[in-house]
Design a protein around this nucleic acid. Sequence first.
DNA 1: GTTAATCATTAGATATGCTGATGTACATGC
DNA 2: GCATGTACATCAGCATATCTAATGATTAAC
Lengths: 316, 316
Amino acid sequence: MLMYMPTLRDLEFRHIVALDTVASEGTFGRAADRLGYTQSAISQQIASLERIVGEPVFDRPGGPRPVELTPFGEQLLSHGRRLLSQLDGIGNELERFRHGDVGRLAVGTFQSVSATVLPQVVGRLRKQHPDVELTVFESDHDDELEERLASGELDVSFVVGEAAGFESRQLLTDPFVLIARPGQFEPGPVAVSDLLDEPMIGQHENSCQLLNEAGLRSAGIDPAYVFRSNDNGTVAAMVRAGMGVAVLPLLCVEPDDPRTALHPLVPAISARRISIAWRAGRTLSPAADRFVELAVEVGAELAERIAAPLVGRPAR
Amino acid sequence: MLMYMPTLRDLEFRHIVALDTVASEGTFGRAADRLGYTQSAISQQIASLERIVGEPVFDRPGGPRPVELTPFGEQLLSHGRRLLSQLDGIGNELERFRHGDVGRLAVGTFQSVSATVLPQVVGRLRKQHPDVELTVFESDHDDELEERLASGELDVSFVVGEAAGFESRQLLTDPFVLIARPGQFEPGPVAVSDLLDEPMIGQHENSCQLLNEAGLRSAGIDPAYVFRSNDNGTVAAMVRAGMGVAVLPLLCVEPDDPRTALHPLVPAISARRISIAWRAGRTLSPAADRFVELAVEVGAELAERIAAPLVGRPAR
DNA sequence: GTTAATCATTAGATATGCTGATGTACATGC
DNA sequence: GCATGTACATCAGCATATCTAATGATTAAC
């Protein structure tokens, strides 16, 4: 009959615990009592341990004298104790991970979110879970964000609208507004048709700009762009300089700048929906979960704040 | 039916190996092939792992798509890998220990051995097993050495003769010789009875000195000590100065010093036997075993060398 | 819609680990 | 010296865990 030859990989933590307990109690029987086993069980556990390591771990003097670790047993025990405390450490780390207190988190974002939602979310996350290693990747190309989400490089990403293959939670809707010089239009809503002859300032081609142009076109305007920039500050400056007017998502605009006037458009261009997304079917880490929650929270607050000036300001 | 609630302590290395293999293979089946199990076994191992940690470790998209670690699974795996490599490290360390290449070793010794046998043994040990942590405790009181041997403070100790409760290996026998000024006696053996009127120089009371005096008395001499020192160089100097003669174990004497003459005694005082001892029934560490072997080796060489001058010198 | 690939589940065989009883070795006390 | 007590080892029997083999359920791809 061929015996299975055990290796160190067969070592189990109960072996170490038994070794430790017997070593400190001095007898198998007392160790058994302390661990809730019978003497026979401990005897067999130690025997099994000795088969695994290939050496006796105790000197058994026989009779009523206590057993004593062999030098090999001492060596094994000191290594084993380290292993046990490592295991306990792992338990603690996993518990922290479970609460979202540690872990890596890679987030995708794009400009307008980076400037408005993200700082709030990051701030709250860092306050509540300071040890989460957060990395942020920004791109103005939706497909790049989605690729990295799909590959697993990103855990979650802010996105405009929804994309197939992803789960998401909607954070807020961001309406398009007209940015003009103060006095250029009557305060209050402006008809899209009034923009027919206006020179337009816009962004370079991106999902948001496309949505915007599609909206204008469906209202009968074929906008003539005299300048394009993806820097929202530059766009606003050009408007102030009288180069033209711009249609931008509200989140891209500095709402309280008195040097520009904001006007809702009628008919409204369908607002872009900002969500946070992750790969469908992929379990989120607790930290990522927390991030999503915070994003929803911040999104709701922001939605409230941006509704006010848009309605209120033209009346001012 | 009450279920047993597993804890992290129930984690086994096979769980980690399965986790790792499935993670890198992408499917349970291929992992099973690689590990020599059936797919069912791996499925059950992962299920068991998930019960232990309380979380799914894989996202299973269903159908022919590969499984993928959950963030929790990733975290667990990275900790688990560390644990596995620790275990392998322990295996290596134990192997080195088994060969006597690492470990602590506490050795007891006394003066004459410290001056003759020990340096040789230590030298060879350090050369062959440089990473053994050797500590040496020296005492001229046999009982102190034995106490520390018994308590486990010392692993092995050089001793004179044998003591109950210890196992030992004999290294050499160290004959007593007479040390006198050259010309004081005829070269060759000296009769103990000729020492009747000689003033004697001896050591303070210790096991070796007692053996010595007992030997002289049993030959009819009641030695009159005019000076005692435990420093062998001092004793020799006093002999050279003409203060008296000394009877010392040969190992305590500088055998090639032309300013003193060495004489065997007739009838010989029964030589002291030098052994190396350890607690009976206690398994020695491989390093200690090695030390014993080296001590025997050195003892044999030394026995050969000290026999020569004792026989040869009086004839010179 | 059918096929192929995947994991989960089930049932049964085997191995493992435990209990309880017994065997064996040793020290201690009379 | 012999009886006694205390300890570990071993054995038999049982419960449980773990593996294999077969089957079921789910999903992608054609």
